[in-house]
Write a protein that binds this DNA or RNA. Structure first.
Length: 769
DNA sequence: CTGCAGCGTTTTTTT
DNA sequence: AACGCTGCAG
């Protein structure tokens, strides 16, 4: 009937053409998940089962939302009019702008990103006279966000000890402060929306009736609040729920299709890698139970990778328990074996990986189809260095984003102050930047005044202007003049004017290293221009039931907070791709190199304390492996520079979980004569820095000897990772990682009851068990 | 008030 | 090794 259905396999087609029922699609890596999602929307519209305005599609990233829209418009000649496709946060922002009065927010409320949030907390702690050593702002932020993501306000937060009680008090004050300043953080965006829908029945009924189809991408990454919000919109609660989290009642299938949305969730529990920021895989099981889903559709045919790669992935992930269960298969043959590079040092690893990448490029692989993956960002340095000296162009993902740069944040703070003078964060950021003689003392007085009069810093400053400090008065006059001057100007001109008047441009012009910053500021003007253009081209998107928001400045600021700006400076063509395993999720490449496969690094030592952490690391490895289409390369280094110190490493335990017949150990790529000397030089210098550090010890030569012997065997002072050992006091345990050597050799042992401990091999008497 | 030197920290990340 | 923050001197 529709040719886009012809391209699907039976399972995909079954998912796409599912009747209007709640559904859960378990979509393995590379099984055509995005295709199913977009084709489902196209099918609903094309068959007249739903109009575009009755559809809501939610993703986690802007990139995914854009991709979905792109593919959809390629399939169907529809305009995006009235369609709610976006991220959780983007859609909530849209909702709150439309209903800002009901949500008790000013029309041009600002969005705090994580660093704004932390500086807001710092300010608050200072006001409350609390020691930020005892209450680290980062930790407070986490405390607050975690509560909001559980649907909890300060009033509902549990606190049994004094310290927690204090933190709850800070939480309460923080929300008050945000409310006064007219700002919301990311979690608040969601919680506000949820609470408004819960308490306002007409509004809830309206949206429940409107969105007859709610589609969710990457459902395994949802947190409790996001799931609760979906339940609310999907009509799962006909009456306002009393409590959150939901008591867990069975959600009846609503027979009255007019008043109930259908939830179509797509996810893969094996690719859940964001538990550390609140994602709850348990939501998948809950969804299945609470929405009474009878049969979960499994997409297991993989169109991406060769068999060997899938076999490795399947074998690895089998070691996790509590999976929903799934086995990827392909009909495209086994392909090459997986190459394994055992390297002496991180430098050596970088050299060999880059050599191999260069080889592959020479063999005709496009550089963009080669990805070098690593567990943590710090590892990119060595690879970058090696690529650079080989003259291979590369692109690093996930570095600093455009809207995160300090010069951009400063510029945005001026704009925020124009849009909303009560925004104390913005005020504090730029009141003395560029420096204009307003220091700690004036600010303290200002803060005190604001507190007493319950007003914003800006208001307090305006009240005191002229009296207290001439400098403060000048600043206020500056902002006022700017506001008057930019009245009625188009967005890019406002930005332009602000850059001159604020002195930012001049400041970075004078600064020695300010060239790039200046360029970025100009880029901000362009960003504003293209944002405006985009808006004028799609005026319908913001209309509909909601009032059109005419405030381009506020909209631009929201855009800057929600879209951190990946679209920055030229997608370098023909560049090798470098990124963390996390940011590789959802992408695919012909050739994938997974580097730094060392116990303690990947899996990361901080995640090895508990089983859940280890399983998440394993899923991370699973994600990494399944990025590869044609070839997969694994590498590890025996010694690695980390935090300025050389660490001696053992190979990752993940190697033990991949069938040996799939692996192919690769000897050094270069002829021995040229390889050995340079490698030894590298290795020697690493060893020498160690011997420097231990210059009190007997001799460096001995250290060198031990280090080299370590590089040739997998044992560690006679012990091995994964080995069972016995300790006189702690009992039986398993070695989970190791570091150091000689007198400093330590192993980390996981004892059942006694927990996990680092033990010195010299002192602790461990025996094999 | 400003600028610089020394100190401590360091997984993953989107919104 | 590198970055951000605090404390101190000018």
């Amino acid at each position: 009937m529709h040719d886009f259905l012809d391209k699907l396999n039976p399972e995909q087609r079954a998912a796409v053409t599912l009747p209007a029922r709640h559904a859960l699609i378990l979509a393995g890596a590379g099984s055509g998940k995005t295709r199913v999602l977009t084709t489902r929307i196209a099918w609903l519209i094309a068959t007249g089962k739903a109009s575009p305005s009755e559809i809501m599609a939610v993703t986690f990233t802007n990139k995914a939302a854009k991709e979905m829209l792109l593919r959809l418009t390629a399939m169907l000649p529809i305009n995006a009019r009235g369609m709610w496709i976006g991220t959780f946060h983007g859609l909530c922002n849209r909702f709150l702008r439309a209903h800002h009065r009901e949500a008790e927010l000013p029309l041009s409320f600002q969005i705090l990103d994580s660093s704004d949030q932390i500086s807001a907390i710092k300010r608050l702690l200072k006001n409350l006279n609390l020691d930020d050593e005892k209450f680290p702002p980062r930790e407070i932020a986490h405390f607050i966000n975690a509560h909001k993501e559980q649907g909890l306000r300060a009033a509902n937060a549990e606190a049994y000890d004094e310290h927690t009680k204090k933190r709850v008090a800070v939480f309460a004050e923080y929300d008050t402060q945000c409310q006064r300043e007219g700002v919301v953080d990311f979690a608040e965006l969601l919680l506000r929306t949820f609470e408004l829908l819960r308490r306002n029945e007409p509004l809830r009924k309206h949206y429940q009736a409107r969105f007859r189809h709610i589609l969710v991408d990457e459902f395994q990454d949802t947190n409790r609040l996001q799931y609760a919000w979906l339940k609310l919109l999907a009509g799962a609660w006909q009456k306002a729920p009393e409590a959150f989290p939901d008591p867990g009642a069975q959600i009846p299938e609503n027979e009255d299709a007019e008043t109930s949305a259908r939830l179509f969730a797509v996810g893969d529990d094996d690719q859940s890698i964001y538990a550390f920021r609140g994602a709850d895989v348990g939501n998948m099981r809950d969804l299945e139970r609470e929405f009474g889903i009878k049969n979960v559709i499994r997409l297991e045919q993989n169109y991406r990778s060769f068999g060997n790669i899938l076999d490795a992935a399947n074998a690895l992930i089998k070691n996790n328990r509590n999976r929903l269960g799934k086995n990827l298969w392909t009909d495209s043959g086994a392909g090459e074996r997986i190459s394994v590079f055992e390297c002496l040092t991180d430098l050596d690893e970088a050299r060999r990986v880059v050599d191999e990448a260069r080889e592959r490029i020479r063999a005709g692989v496009p550089p963009t189809q080669i990805a070098l993956l690593y567990r943590s960002n710090a590892q990119s340095r060595a690879l970058e260095h090696q690529l650079f000296s080989n003259g291979i162009s590369y692109r690093v993902y996930g570095g600093q984003r455009f809207f995160d740069r300090q010069e951009i944040r400063n510029a945005l703070a001026y704009l925020r102050l124009l849009a909303n003078p009560d925004d104390d964060s913005a005020f504090a950021r730029v009141v003395n930047f560029p420096t204009r003689g307003i220091g700690g003392k004036s600010l303290e007085a200002l803060g005190e005044n604001a507190r007493v009069t319950h007003s914003s810093l800006y208001n307090a400053a305006a009240g005191l202007a002229g009296k207290a400090s001439a400098a403060v008065g000048n600043f206020i006059r500056l902002v006022e003049a700017l506001r008057a001057e930019t009245q009625g100007l188009a967005l890019p001109e406002i930005v332009e004017r602000m850059l001159d008047k604020s002195g930012l441009r001049q400041h970075y012009f004078k600064e020695k290293e300010g060239r790039d910053r200046l360029e970025n500021l100009n880029e901000l003007v362009s960003a504003a221009a293209s944002f405006l253009e985009e808006r004028e081209n799609h005026p319908e998107e913001t209309s509909g039931a909601e009032p059109p928001d005419t405030d381009a400045l506020a909209a631009f600021l929201a855009y800057a907070s929600l879209e951190s700006g990946e679209h920055q400076a030229g997608e370098k063509e023909d560049a090798v791709q470098l990124m963390t395993v996390h940011s590789a999720k959802g992408l695919e490449f012909d050739e994938v190199f997974i580097t730094g496969l060392e116990e303690g690094l990947f899996p990361h030592e901080n995640a090895m304390g508990d089983r859940d952490g280890r399983e998440e690391e394993r899923r991370l490895m699973y994600v990494a492996i399944t990025r590869a289409r044609k070839r997969l390369h694994l590498s590890y280094a025996r010694a690695r520079m980390l935090h300025g110190q050389t660490r001696y490493c053992l190979s990752s335990s993940f190697f033990d979980e991949i069938p040996e017949n799939l692996l192919e150990k690769r000897a050094s790529s270069a002829p021995q004569t040229s390889f050995l000397p340079s490698a030894r030089r590298n290795f020697t210098s690493a060893a020498m820095s160690i011997s420097d550090a231990f210059r009190n010890r007997k001799n460096g030569a001995e250290s060198l000897g031990q280090a080299s012997s370590l590089a040739r065997s997998d044992t560690f002072g006679g012990f091995r990772i994964g080995q069972s050992v016995a300790h006189a006091k702690f009992g039986q345990g398993v070695i989970v990682s190791a570091e150091g050597y000689g007198n400093d050799a330590r192993v980390q042992v996981e004892f059942g009851r006694a927990g996990t401990k680092w033990l010195s091999l010299v002192h602790a008497k461990l025996t094999p068990a």
